[in-house]
Design a protein around this nucleic acid. Sequence first.
DNA 1: TGCGACATGTAACACGTTACATGATTGA
DNA 2: TCAATCATGTAACGTGTTACATGTCGCA
Lengths: 221, 221
Amino acid sequence: MALRHAVLAALLDGELSGYQLAKAFDVGVANFWHALPQQLYAELAKLEQEGLVAGRRVVQETRPTKRLFHVTDAGLTELERFAAAASKPSFIRDDLLVKVQAADHVDAGPLIRQVEERAAMAEAKIDLFRRILRKMRGGLGEEEFLRAGRRVGPYLTCLRGLAFEEGNRDWCLRTAAILRERSPAAPDGRTAAVPGEGIAAMPREGTAPAPRNPEVAHAER
Amino acid sequence: MALRHAVLAALLDGELSGYQLAKAFDVGVANFWHALPQQLYAELAKLEQEGLVAGRRVVQETRPTKRLFHVTDAGLTELERFAAAASKPSFIRDDLLVKVQAADHVDAGPLIRQVEERAAMAEAKIDLFRRILRKMRGGLGEEEFLRAGRRVGPYLTCLRGLAFEEGNRDWCLRTAAILRERSPAAPDGRTAAVPGEGIAAMPREGTAPAPRNPEVAHAER
DNA sequence: TGCGACATGTAACACGTTACATGATTGA
DNA sequence: TCAATCATGTAACGTGTTACATGTCGCA
């Protein structure tokens, strides 16, 4: 139940239409949450029903009529409540990491290509985030802005997004280099996978005296 | 539809029971995917029905009987297919970032506490990941292991997890410091929120000549 | 003439989370 | 004796994703 709060937080910087929100929550600039347009239109409708946001119809000359939403007092109260409640830990969930986990058992060619593609995407986001940050702090230096600027929330989340993408890029480049080096085959060609034997997955150290498995009998199926 | 592939990838390092898988996918060590036990038991059942994994019943002396699963040939083929298909981009989705985005409008006290708590959690994961990495590479140095080791997939994903948590910790510590400095109030007490006026959210630069909003009339509601 | 941006949704489905349910063994 | 670990699930619910639906305007 945090999409609603993400929407409220995004609307703190002024009125936005569903369409504008959708852009902000889209691939490009979602540094603190991501959502599809459909989710946002649905959530805005719910939030309006509950009185947490209010919309204002704006008729335009050339463009379709739109509705600009802003946070109500009740909405602010709800955000306040949410901010004070405990946060749940966040997890990585990434297709590409699943593939790299299996790297020793699958064709390296397509994997390397995907990792490099991801590095390029990260680079593009890094550029974007840097531009956004520059714009947000105006003429000021970063330290100065963070000390004295009026609104630092979005700046801080953007910094997290920037660091995340830098980490992404660095890891992707290194991973690609390693996988390439380990693939004797063509620069982007296919490779024979090295089977490799079983190392117990994710050993948790310091957790009790390793329960030696007392296997006695085993019937298949 | 990637949980199934995450399960297949996790089972590449040898047979695991549902319970063991659940631990690997749990908070502690989920460097490439996260899932709850219920999801895993359900997914294992589906995967077995489809013949992508096979289970072997193991009767134990003192512990309840368990089933150890391994990837079948069909499962490997499916993983191979998955690895070659395009990956979807991954997004951040984090409660805490939503709260920081709203930092200028909510009580700073609880927020700071949460950010610091998160930093400590990140630190704990960093320690864990470092121990796991050391164990995986055995006596070898990192570069050496990555060049010549048998199975580097899990090592690489763990490196990503490590970098992610380091980024998390650094950002949390810096953010906490900044929020503290901006809060004139007690070290962990409550603070008057500075209202701050609207800066347009997430400006996308270089995107066409900024469509000046030709608002003409506006009726409320 | 056709494509992309603007602007807003509905419906079906897949996926993830929370709550519930059971039962033996080991160590504090 | 109480909590944690081992071991496996079901059911209900909430959230996210994919596909579909509609219509205008400006630009190439």
